[in-house]
Design a protein around this nucleic acid. Sequence first.
DNA 1: CTTATTACCGACCGGTCGGTAGGTAATTAG
DNA 2: CTAATTACCTACCGACCGGTCGGTAATAAG
Lengths: 205, 205
Amino acid sequence: MLSAEEKSKADSRERIITATTDLFLEKGFAGTSMSTIAKASDMTKASLYYHFSGKEDLFIACVTHGYAAALDALTVITANASLTAEQKLRAAIDALYETTITSPVGRMSPLIAEVSRAFPKVARSFHTEYIEPQRAALWQIVEEGVAQGVFARVDQNQFFHLAFGPIVTLSLSREMFATFDDLDTHFPVDDLRHGHTEVLIGMLR
Amino acid sequence: MLSAEEKSKADSRERIITATTDLFLEKGFAGTSMSTIAKASDMTKASLYYHFSGKEDLFIACVTHGYAAALDALTVITANASLTAEQKLRAAIDALYETTITSPVGRMSPLIAEVSRAFPKVARSFHTEYIEPQRAALWQIVEEGVAQGVFARVDQNQFFHLAFGPIVTLSLSREMFATFDDLDTHFPVDDLRHGHTEVLIGMLR
DNA sequence: CTTATTACCGACCGGTCGGTAGGTAATTAG
DNA sequence: CTAATTACCTACCGACCGGTCGGTAATAAG
């Protein structure tokens, strides 16, 4: 049963979330007002409060919204039986670069940092529902390679440090210096990704 | 000539900057009000405007304040003639972990990301006066090792990506998840630093 | 001792903040 | 057809925002 009303309600929620996410990523949480969000969502502020109980609720919806899609991209890779462990690892790293730098949820780390003290629950959720599953998916690939004897055994936290560190920092740098007209010269995603991938594969040999 | 007035003025500026930096790091730029800053600085809001022309001016002062000290720690290492290139590199990495995770200026990356669109000049300054000199200092050590034949030649941007990436991400993670009571279990600085250092040295052999 | 300057303050400004009360047109249920 | 519900609106609230005003006590200069 998908009545016209329910469809319009879902559409509105979606429209609000995408518009708000853009604003939060651009201006930060405290720097984005509910009136601005309302304008960007083609709505009145009062209508926003019909769909969401408050600014924090709306923020949680924005953060949570992209979890599934981002993690699906990884699980599709791990589940692909026709790939070797090394092929899976390469594909997973590509996917991590893509989501962390391009997708809204991947770019939200600075935003989480901004509100982490005010809303610790959002930070917890981001960690358990987004960061940890990403790590688990990556580690599953590594363990598969170890079991097959093609990867050497490495320390888990060390590997995560070296794997996620450069990617997240690259994403953060591109946010910090988003206004630079020579952004891709300073922070060339593809170049850096290639070299990074080879180092990680090298660690596992 | 250091009159009582001038001393008190300098003291006040210093007091304001340190108090403001703490607040900005905790609540973000937009989330910190001038009245809150005034209270934390034991002053009236009006007096704040005697020392700084506005909130942006105060923010710039906070960001700029720690540049010199953080960079000095690195130049002391590069200038130390009694160290080998590898010893310098190890010491430099230690120093980078220390400043990036502990010092206010090192922890400011998420803050710069928050305001980068509104104040691109601050982002530029952070890049040219803080990031670039750090990279230059580190690269000088690498080139010294290459010239002495103890380090292999590596790509500059790749090396920076692998060197700074994990450190900045670790700092960001500790900001994002600062409220976790098991923060040091999830993000153990010393452990991660040791493993990271060995990988970097390994890259250069 | 007089005068100017300095570092600071209380009181206030127009504007915006997050949030709400009450109403209305359109859809749905009975 | 009627009554209820839904999705949305206009108009407004007190609190707080960044910033400014006209002073004032303490110091420094002459």
